[in-house]
């Protein structure tokens, strides 16, 4: 077992309990994942039990009823969701309709760019997506060299919760298959970045060519078990 030392930038391996204790009520939290793949299920479990509340969660979608961040919303500890869609989550749609949770929708790739630009130290992006739609009514529309465009503000968060396929103790991360999604973008866009992974390696354990998130962006690496209850194949999505 590798030694734990949370204060050492040359060793970011942190215990699950300590990592969760760093997250506070009222904070904004980016959560990686698109559906189950890349959703940091174990860190979410930790949040669920930690007693934090009034969270703002930024994620692609709200997982599905009873899964992932849906459990945080269902428990009533999420004040606001900044999200792309809720197509697979009738329960959160119902809570939105009952005004039990505030929802801010963005086009999926625009949400990604708002986060990417936040991580890149930019103030925002300029886009023509949605200029002819009702989403322009609630956004800053400008004339950009003769073209109608929307100014989209960058998003940063207090915390990002990431699921990586593997991490080294320096905090270098790599992702796999469709579990990349928002993870590498969010890992660059928060003040406190906590990555869970099934596989923790010594420095050099990830070939430098295959590091997707350089360690400078990551604060804590948490080793988690690949629990089939949390990470297994969802039978209802297999033909």
């Amino acid at each position: 077992m590798l030694p734990l030392n949370a204060d050492n930038k040359m060793n970011k391996l942190t215990s699950y309990t300590e990592a969760i204790s760093l997250i506070k009520s009222e904070q904004s939290i980016m959560v990686g994942g698109f559906g189950n793949p890349g959703t940091p299920m174990t860190l979410i479990e930790g949040l669920l039990k930690s007693g934090v509340r009034n969270l703002t969660i930024i994620k692609n979608e709200a997982n599905e009823p009873g899964i992932g961040i849906s459990r945080l919303v269902e428990k009533g500890i999420v004040r606001k969701l900044i999200i792309s869609h809720l197509g697979l989550n009738s329960r959160v749609i119902e809570m939105m309709n009952n005004k039990q949770v505030e929802i801010e929708f963005h086009p999926q790739g625009i949400l990604a760019e708002k986060i990417r630009s936040g991580g890149a130290g930019l103030l925002g992006i300029i886009t023509d997506i949605g200029v002819d739609t009702i989403i322009a009514d609630t956004r800053k529309v400008v004339d950009f060299y003769g073209q109608k465009a929307i100014l989209e503000k960058s998003i940063r968060a207090d915390v990002a919760l990431i699921h990586a396929a593997a991490a080294d103790t320096l905090g270098n991360l790599c992702y796999t298959k469709t579990a990349f999604n928002f993870n590498p973008l969010m890992a660059q866009a928060a003040d406190l970045v906590i990555a869970e992974t099934f596989e923790v390696l010594e420095p050099g354990g990830i070939d430098p060519d295959h590091v997707h998130t350089p360690c400078v962006f990551v604060d804590h690496v948490v080793h988690v078990e690949n629990n089939p209850r949390l990470y297994g194949v969802l039978a209802h999505h297999v033909l």
Partner: peptide
């Protein structure tokens, strides 16, 4: 478990497939 499409269904991939983040995807 880590390989789905945008609708949530589990998929196979063909030879020459690639995976990438959501910024690249869009």
């Amino acid at each position: 478990p880590m390989q789905i499409d945008a609708g949530g269904g589990y998929i196979t991939v063909n030879k020459g497939a690639s995976f990438f983040d959501s910024a690249t995807s869009f």
